[in-house]
Design a protein around this nucleic acid. Sequence first.
RNA 1: GCCGGAGUGGCGGAGCUGGUAGACGCUGGGGACUUAAAAUCCCCUGGCCGCAAGGCCGCGUGGGUUCGAGUCCCACCUCCGGCACCA
Length: 819
Amino acid sequence: MPYDPHAIEARFQQRWRESRLFATSEKPGSPKFYCLEMFMYPSGKIHMGHVRNYAIGDVVARFHRMRGENVLHPMGFDAFGLPAENAAIKGQSHPKVWTDSNIATMKQQLDRLGLMYDWGREVHTCEPDYYRWNQWFFLKMLERGLAYKAKRTVNWCPGCATVLANEQVENGACWRCQSAVTLKEMEQWFLRITGYAQELLNDLDSLTEWPPEVVAMQRNWIGRSEGAYVEFAVEGAPHRIRVFTTRLDTIYGATYVVLAPEHPLVDAITAPDRRAEVDAFRTKMRAQSTHDRSTSKEKLGVFTGARAVNPFSGERVPIYIANFVLMDYGTGAIMSVPAHDQRDFEFAKAYGLPVRVVVQPGGLDEAALAQASTEDGLLVDSGPYTGLPNREAMAKMGADAKVRGFGEPTVTFRIKDWGISRQRYWGTPIPVVYCDACGTVPVPESQLPVELPYDAPLTGKGESPLARLPSFVQVPCPKCGAPGRRETDTMDTFVDSSWYFFRYCSAREESAAFDRGAAEYWTPVDFYIGGIEHATMHLIYCRFFTMALRDMGLIPFGEPVRRLMCQGMVIKDGAKMSKSLGNTVDPDAMIARYGADAVRLNILFLAPPWDQLDWKESGAEGAARFLNRVYALVEDNAAEVSGETAAPGSGEALALRRRTHQTVKRVTGELDQRLKINTAIAGLMELVNAQQAFLATYGRTPEERFALKESLEALVRLLSPFAPHAADALWELLGRDGFLADGPWPSYDPLIAREQTVTLPVQVNGKLRDQITVPADAPDETVLATAMASGVVQAHLAGKIPVKKFVVKGRIVNLVVKE
RNA sequence: GCCGGAGUGGCGGAGCUGGUAGACGCUGGGGACUUAAAAUCCCCUGGCCGCAAGGCCGCGUGGGUUCGAGUCCCACCUCCGGCACCA
């Protein structure tokens, strides 16, 4: 019977389901392995990127399970979010209906791939039994001061009609819809991720099994910067302007001060005759998108008419507002030292402000300065600090500022608090009530969940749909009972995904977000796979959440993920697969054509997991061909090898055994350490080639029959993580019972795997000239003698005696002669 | 601009801590089987010279270290990704 992937796949998927093969539970005392792939957004249908991500995860999960570890391998749905709401606005269907139907479709597609998921732990973040715990965490954070409400200038996406967190803005555009993001002043809920900035940074060093590029991206994102705060008094006014600088040593060279246009002191200090110009500038800036503001590098600003007093020198300098100073970094105000900062230099040149060198590296000519100098040197014109090396002066000046009460050394971070308010419907309601008498009142835990009402007017116009539902808004104050108003914004969906991996540990738990014992058994996640696009979004949020949960006493550690792998993109014809380009490949069609095992094998074989992968249909054909060959090979020889018992073997039989044991070693190593799944599969192909070659000289001696049996059995087991249906079917053909997922993983005998003879290249002066075959354990002298005995080698030596001889055991011989 | 990563046949990719460059697969060519085709199987498939044996050249470019470099060092080019007026 020829290999029929569809019949086999349907049959085994059913048998796995019926025997509840993939259900997992805690087994105290046995080693666990938590294998996780980033859960799915239920967008409609799965694409090749999903197939790749989940196929990789499945190989790892199955491998560890076969090795006898207790593997947790769950899947769920990141089910809140804008697309569902947008679909509803287009009149398609209710977000819940849309989401549920997409989940049903995608689950079916996943099952068709034969993925080893424990669906008993499935989570849907849009269900109250999940999001109530978002609300619960929010309340806990509120208690601990980790959640707070503030009026801030925030990123507004006109396309999505909602606020975005900093992490969700890419080059001034919305990460989801690419609209240009604008700034808007709004009251927002924030999570104090900055409170963990230092720890998030420190811990990066311990994430040795994360891709270094992700670690680097997070380090950049956190953006630690050491410097100092210094206060400049405003001349003739009671105000003080606090600036942040990393170059306190240059303060005697400060020739002006700049505030961000949105700085709260601008109004108060602006001179009457400058007001019109200042207001006009501020209006212009406000209208600009963040993107426009940062892409145009032109320095623009206006003088406020006020002057600031340099606390060190007492000098009076003009105060400007300018486009290059940002309200949300540092203090929103800077001292400008044009001689030693390029931006300050450009602004000074444009506005005719003085440039004064205060750090002299030697030979710097103030009058001829064409750009700012950032070199170290000795301070000049710097009062009592004149003559000091600038680095030394910086420390001294920081300490002095502190003593004198107008500044102090400090550290700032680029990372901002995480704004989680979203003016949309399809998300977790923020569990807060506003009361005229009591102010902002948290909803008591006993009243959770605050359920998302089913019907809400969805307009996509940028105000919270919930605000237009009196039945939702109007609620008695939980504290005093007087009429109150509910918060009508919902949470960023990245809150949902920040802790879902804990929920999987006890997904049906009703009395807590997760069962502590279960979480302590399973977490942290041992192996996590997902796209690198989450490097500074989900992957930083979930680290923050884990630290916060630890500080709440819910778990005993702060880092959620031991080993992280970012799978590469799947592209076709040199471009990312996307609907708009029309170059998508439908996984269902591929499965219908070649079978799930061939699709899995192909996508795994084409490139290392982390590399970009160029999808080629011809590869799927190759994979199907390989499975066909294996099937025929096993089927033809199943009867032949049944019942054979161990025989040591010699000659060809031993050679096959060696190949078998070498392959087990190689594939095990790849899956355990390097995860070069593509070369693991190549190893299996080589083994099949060797088996077929062996059959050409097969003489049916008992030892040959045993070697073949051993080899075929190992092959089928090794194949199981990659092509699980085919492998189980082959196992059955071999007359064996049970499912391969239950293991064991084959072991190898190093003595059998060891080569007895080796073929060594012989070089003369570094050029390959001949090959010799010697026993693997031959001493160097023997190897050398054999090499020298070669006629080809002798010819190249041309009668000369080698001046140097290199013998690298098992590798190479190189003979060096003088020309 | 700064920080990462990568440049190897017609293609995807192998090549572990420096040691036979091109494993494995795809494509292409030739052959077997077949009335024929598909499927399958066998052989060849980096370039150049040569009847052959064999030789020379080849891992983005140019240098260097080394008995020996795809791998290490220096400079440069190209591509991809991230951050980007961060004070």
